[in-house]
Computed example of a mutant assay.
Amino acid sequence: MPLLPGAEPFHHEGGPVGVLVCHGFTGTPQSLRPWADHLADHGLTVSLPLLPGHGTRWQDMQLTRWEDWYAEVDRELRALTERCEQVFVCGLSMGGALALLLAARHGAAVSGLVLVNPSVRSDNAATVLLPVLRHLVPSIRGVADDIAKEGSTEVGYDRTPLHAAWSLSRLWRTVQGELEQVTQPLLLFRSPRDHIVSPANARLLLGRISSTEVEERLCERSFHVATLDHDAEAIFEGSLDFIRRLAPAAKADPV
């Protein structure tokens, strides 16, 4: 099955500091590619994988589960740790949940987290119906493209596959159960006008993680996909400054 335009994974060999970037549910690397390019342009080694079942057609997601999505980012993290002195993990939406789980399970192998509108809980009461509903209704309207900036679009599925949505709810429960194991420095970007992920998500994770160094920044002009929105540059520059502060080897730009 051919990939959607822009859905290709991205890898860049840079310096001794690595960054794993995780995209969201039904999304693709396209939503994070400008961020990944910015980090790569400043000398970092960057991995932006395409999650299984994503980037082709929504029906392909029906064959995958959260364990498949996590396994992909876990492999990428392990590969980065083999060739980098320090590794940071960034994530948008569900990618934030995957990043938190990596941090909880890999400990000191992850030097820090940068999350953008992370999704860690259900905001829809109908989620409790998914175990049954997924066998009756294949899909519902998609969640992609929540962007305020005119002319900016997200490459993602226009339908939400309910088998995959049910598995996402299981991922949330798994992450919630392991949040106390997250101890790494965290930079959190949150959009007050996010139409996909409610503020309750940020409150939950900030209330449960064990990190002592936490900073929350608001993306006042952006919707959910803030990495393609008005506040994108603030995210790019803020994350680079965060990484450079925690990783001395990342401070010098390439000549």
Rank of each mutant, 00 (worst) to 15 (best):
H54Y: 03
H135F: 08
R170W: 02
R170V: 03
G91L: 01
L20W: 13
R208T: 10
A250P: 04
S239R: 07
A40R: 13
L133R: 13
L44G: 03
V128A: 15
P161G: 09
P185H: 09
E216T: 09
V255Y: 02
V155G: 12
V114A: 06
L101Q: 14
L133Y: 06
H224M: 04
G96L: 03
C219A: 08
D241K: 14
E150L: 14
T153K: 15
A125K: 01
S152P: 12
E216M: 15
W66A: 05
R57M: 12
L240K: 06
A71V: 02
P254R: 05
C90E: 14
T45V: 10
L102V: 00
G15F: 04
I243Q: 03
S167R: 05
W172I: 07
L240D: 09
W166C: 12
L246C: 05
R203Y: 00
D253W: 14
M61Q: 14
C22G: 10
A252F: 05
V116L: 01
R173G: 15
D229H: 13
L130C: 08
C22W: 01
L188F: 07
L240R: 15
L179G: 08
L77D: 07
G6T: 08
V143A: 11
A99T: 01
G91Q: 06
R245P: 00
L218A: 05
V137Y: 09
A71Y: 02
Y70K: 00
P49M: 05
F189S: 02
P138G: 03
F10T: 09
Q86W: 08
Q176M: 03
V120L: 15
R33N: 11
G91V: 06
S152N: 12
A97Y: 05
Q176G: 15
I235G: 10
A97W: 08
L162F: 09
G156C: 08
G156N: 10
G95S: 13
V120W: 05
R65H: 12
F189Q: 04
I235P: 07
Q59P: 01
G95Y: 04
V19T: 08
A247P: 01
S31Q: 15
Q181D: 12
G6D: 04
A97I: 02
L92C: 13
E213T: 14
T127G: 12
E237P: 01
G55A: 07
L129Y: 00
D253K: 11
R78S: 10
A247H: 01
A104W: 01
L204F: 14
H11V: 06
H163M: 13
D231H: 02
R75Q: 11
T212L: 12
M1N: 10
A226D: 12
L186K: 11
W58I: 08
G107F: 11
C22I: 12
A97T: 09
T64D: 01
W58C: 04
T127K: 11
L240H: 11
L130S: 03
L115H: 02
R78I: 02
E8F: 14
W66E: 04
E180Q: 13
F223L: 15
G18L: 06
G91C: 09
F242G: 02
G53C: 09
E178S: 12
A7R: 00
S31C: 10
E213A: 13
A148W: 06
P185A: 07
P199A: 13
D68Y: 00
L98K: 02
L136S: 04
L246P: 00
R193Q: 10
